[in-house]
Simulated assay, not measured.
Amino acid sequence: MVLNELRDHQNIIQLVIDTLTGEIEQACQIITSTIQSGNKVLLAGNGGSAADAQHIAAELSGRFVKERKALPGIALTVDTSALTAIANDHGYDRVFSRQVEAFAQPGDLFIGISTSGNSQSVLNAFQSATAFGCKTLGLSGRDGGKMNGICDLNIIIPSNVTARIQEMHILIGHILCKAVDELF
């Protein structure tokens, strides 16, 4: 079982190397230009993707590897009062889009994470981010889902296995943070 899991992970990472390197480089350019312009990065996802959003935001506001100034990385998944109030008053599908409306400025970057590419709360946040003049980056899997048509760049992990998709999302998140570190 262990060896099979490791081999499955190895196969997916090879597919990512073979097919997504250019898109990951493009994502690095998007996040570094956002930071260089003095803008912020907003992130959201549900479940394990929420944890990934929080992880990436923490690497930006704390540090990744290099000691540098704190950077504005904000996970829209952490304020339980806002999440429950918005879900109660506007429906769960609006929990991230309402926060985008509250915090986004033109030139900011919204990163939406969804293994299926079809999480309505994330899709709505993409629409709000676009309306506010934000750049948009998706991390998805399977066939990319509805995120394909609504974000500037959707990095689609070539897998149908949620665990493999999430593993690659956090790897890409770390690569993005490394690119930001190299600015300093």
Rank of each mutant, 00 (worst) to 15 (best):
N4H: 14
N11F: 09
N11R: 14
N11M: 14
Q14A: 10
Q14S: 15
V16L: 07
E25P: 03
A27H: 07
A27S: 12
A27M: 02
A27L: 08
C28A: 12
Q29W: 10
T32E: 06
T32F: 01
S33D: 14
S37A: 15
K40V: 02
K40S: 04
L43Y: 10
A44Q: 04
G45S: 03
G45T: 02
N46Y: 09
S49Q: 08
S49N: 08
H55A: 06
A58H: 00
S61C: 11
S61R: 03
G62P: 12
F64S: 01
V65K: 15
K69P: 00
L71K: 04
P72W: 03
P72E: 10
A75C: 11
A75H: 09
L76D: 06
T77K: 00
V78L: 12
D79G: 02
T80G: 12
S81C: 12
A82R: 10
L83Q: 08
T84E: 05
I86A: 13
A87W: 07
D93I: 09
R94C: 05
V95N: 07
V95M: 12
S97R: 07
V100D: 02
A102H: 08
P106I: 11
D108V: 05
F110V: 11
F110D: 04
G112I: 04
I113L: 12
I113K: 01
I113M: 10
S114H: 05
G117R: 00
N118M: 01
L123F: 08
A125R: 02
F126W: 02
F126E: 12
F126N: 08
S128W: 06
C134I: 06
K135M: 09
L137Q: 10
G138Q: 03
G138W: 00
G145K: 00
G145R: 01
M147N: 10
N148P: 00
G149T: 13
